[in-house]
């Protein structure tokens, strides 16, 4: 939640920046700002990874090599994992309790049904050998 709010604030800030830019009517500045403005979280991450490779940007991705690409992929996975919102302790406990209760209820129902049916079937078909 907190992270989401913060991101919203960021967005607002950026909007403000742009309006101010418009008021000043400075085109050059606007263009310089644009790549930064466009960079959402992941894109920014990607450009960072690119620059970390310290290779000329004109080269295609295929030149990085399989290990380089794998390493970058894993870095990106970790970066995405950091943005994951994990359940809180309270949530975790509630859901675990709910699942346990649910499983217990179904277990009881099925066990009861099975017992009854097994008795009935044994009564009807059993005995022969």
């Amino acid at each position: 939640m907190a992270e989401k709010n913060r991101r919203d604030e960021d967005d607002n800030d950026r909007l403000d920046d742009e309006t101010i830019d418009d008021v000043v009517d400075d085109d050059a500045d606007d263009e310089a700002d644009e790549p930064v403005g466009r960079g959402g979280t992941a894109t920014r991450e990607r450009t960072k990874a690119d620059s970390a490779d310290s290779r000329p940007k004109t080269r295609t991705e295929g030149r990085v090599g399989i290990f380089g690409r794998l390493a970058r992929f894993f870095r990106e996975v970790v970066a995405e994992l950091r943005k994951v919102i994990w359940p809180t302790r309270k949530e975790l406990l509630t859901y675990t309790a709910v699942v346990v209760v649910f499983v217990a209820v179904v277990l009881t129902i099925v066990a009861g049904l099975d017992y009854a049916f097994a008795r009935a079937v044994l009564w009807v078909f059993g005995g022969s050998s």
């Binding site: 919203d8 995405e80 994951v84 359940p87 975790l92 675990t96 699942v99």
Partner: peptide, 11 residues
């Protein structure tokens, strides 16, 4: 349960 509840939220 822990993993099932984990989400990446895209605004």
């Amino acid at each position: 349960v822990f993993i099932e509840q984990a989400q990446r939220r895209i605004p």
